[in-house]
Structure formats: structure tokens, C-alpha cells
């Protein structure tokens, strides 16, 4: 069971996560808007989406207990190092949310038509699928996001120890929650952590993905 301190921490994370979701109008636009016809429109739209996404990510991170006590430049290095991974994780959640079931095909089509090379899109969809198969609870997404952001071995981090301590507190809660939510699957926690490795791979390929997009 979670200690009262851990329950409080989880509550903070969930509040921060729920307050910083993608605004409904942007989510709707992503799925239903048909008036984006040219590549330029698509470029502007996806850039706006990405900017909002980063802003939300920063707002979420600012509210994580302990984050603001870290060195300011370390805060920036953590966010810079994790933004792409955290965004892929959020997009996987969005993609797998039941609410969007009827729109998933539309969203998939939009991503396929984005101009990004198929070589990158197929692994992306495989990732979404593999995350979907884990049937993660909302708390698991929120905690995993915090864990991704608070990765101590990002470039330019000066005080790795403080970051590691913070990350550990979230890892401990996630491990306990996994046991509660998936009592019949003792491997669940390990599988979640395995997704982090996949996220790192996406992050490494992200620049190439953008390049292929621009070239197209």
C-alpha cells in the first residue's frame, strides 16, 4: 500500500496532469478539421500543436513536487532532454484513449498524411499499439511522464543526485500502483520501464523524422 506521503505526492501529480491536458479545441481540430489542405497549413498546424504541447509539459513539470527546488539550468536541461519523449508518451495516451476510438482512424490518417516518411510512422504506430496493450491507468501515464522528465542522465545536468532522488520517489509509487492495478501481471512494472527505452529510440530518431518531413 502507498504511504500517506506517497498518496499526497500522487495527488499532486494527478492534479498537475489533469490541469495540463491538451485543450479540447486543439484535440478536436486535430481530429476533425478538414480545411488543412496544403503542406504549409499542415506545417503551421503541427507546429502550433507542438508548441502548445511543450507549454503544457512545462506547466505539468513545474507542479511536480520538488522540481522547482532543482537548479534552474538543470530544470531546462531536464525539459529539453525529455520533451520529445514526454510528447510521444502523451500522444500514445491520446491515441489509445477509449474516448477517441471512433476518431482513431482519422487521427492515424492525419499522421500518415503528415509528410513524415513511412519508415518512421510504422514504428510510431507499433509503439502506440504496444503502449495500448499495457492497459495503463491514468495514474500510470502521469507517473511515467514524471519519471521520463526526471531522468538524471540527460546531457548538461549538474546535480544528477537530486534529480535521481526525485525520480526515485515517483518510481516507488509507480511500482506499488502497478502491483495494485495488475495483481496478476508481476511483469507490468518492468514492461512500463521497457517502454522508456523505446521512447529514447524515438527521441534519437526525432531529428531525422523532422528532416524527412521538411524534405518532403
Amino acid at each position: 500500500e502507498l504511504t500517506s506521503e506517497q498518496m499526497e505526492l500522487l495527488q499532486f501529480v494527478m492534479d498537475a496532469y489533469n490541469k495540463n491536458r491538451l485543450p479540447q479545441e486543439l484535440a478536436t481540430k486535430l481530429i476533425v478539421q478538414d480545411d488543412i489542405v496544403t503542406n504549409d497549413d499542415n506545417f503551421v498546424f503541427l507546429t502550433t500543436m507542438a508548441t502548445s504541447h511543450v507549454q503544457l509539459l512545462v506547466e505539468f513539470t513545474k507542479k511536480l513536487p520538488g522540481f522547482q527546488t532543482l537548479d534552474h539550468e538543470d530544470q531546462i536541461a531536464l525539459l529539453k532532454g525529455s520533451a520529445v519523449e514526454a510528447m510521444f508518451l502523451r500522444s500514445a495516451e491520446l491515441f489509445n484513449r477509449k474516448l477517441l476510438d471512433t476518431h482513431t482512424d482519422r487521427l492515424a490518417e492525419r499522421i500518415r498524411n503528415s509528410g513524415i516518411s513511412q519508415d518512421y510512422i510504422n514504428p510510431l504506430f507499433n509503439f502506440y499499439k504496444s503502449v495500448g496493450e499495457l492497459n495503463m491507468a491514468e495514474e500510470e501515464y502521469a507517473l511515467l511522464s514524471a519519471i521520463v522528465i526526471l531522468t538524471p542522465d540527460r546531457q548538461y545536468i549538474k546535480d544528477k543526485e537530486s534529480v535521481e532522488k526525485l525520480q526515485e520517489s515517483f518510481l516507488n509509487i509507480l511500482e506499488k500502483l502497478c502491483k495494485q492495478h495488475h495483481p496478476n501481471n508481476p511483469q507490468h512494472f518492468a514492461r512500463l520501464l521497457g517502454r522508456l527505452t523505446e521512447l529514447r529510440t524515438f527521441s534519437h530518431h526525432h531529428t531525422d523524422m523532422l528532416m524527412s518531413w521538411r524534405v518532403n
Binding site: 507546429t47 502550433t48 508548441t51 511543450v54 507549454q55 506547466e59
Partner: peptide, 21 residues
């Protein structure tokens, strides 16, 4: 426009809470 900002600029502005300025 936001599309001209780099990732670090967006992060710095959002961290300082003055993104719209």
C-alpha cells in the same frame, strides 16, 4: 510567431511564466 521559437526558448519562457509576452 511560436513557429519561430526553438524548443529551449519555449521552455525558458514557459518556465518563467511569460510565454505570451
Amino acid at each position: 510567431p511560436a513557429s519561430n521559437l526553438g524548443l529551449e526558448d519555449i521552455i525558458r519562457k514557459a518556465l518563467m511564466g511569460n510565454f505570451d509576452e
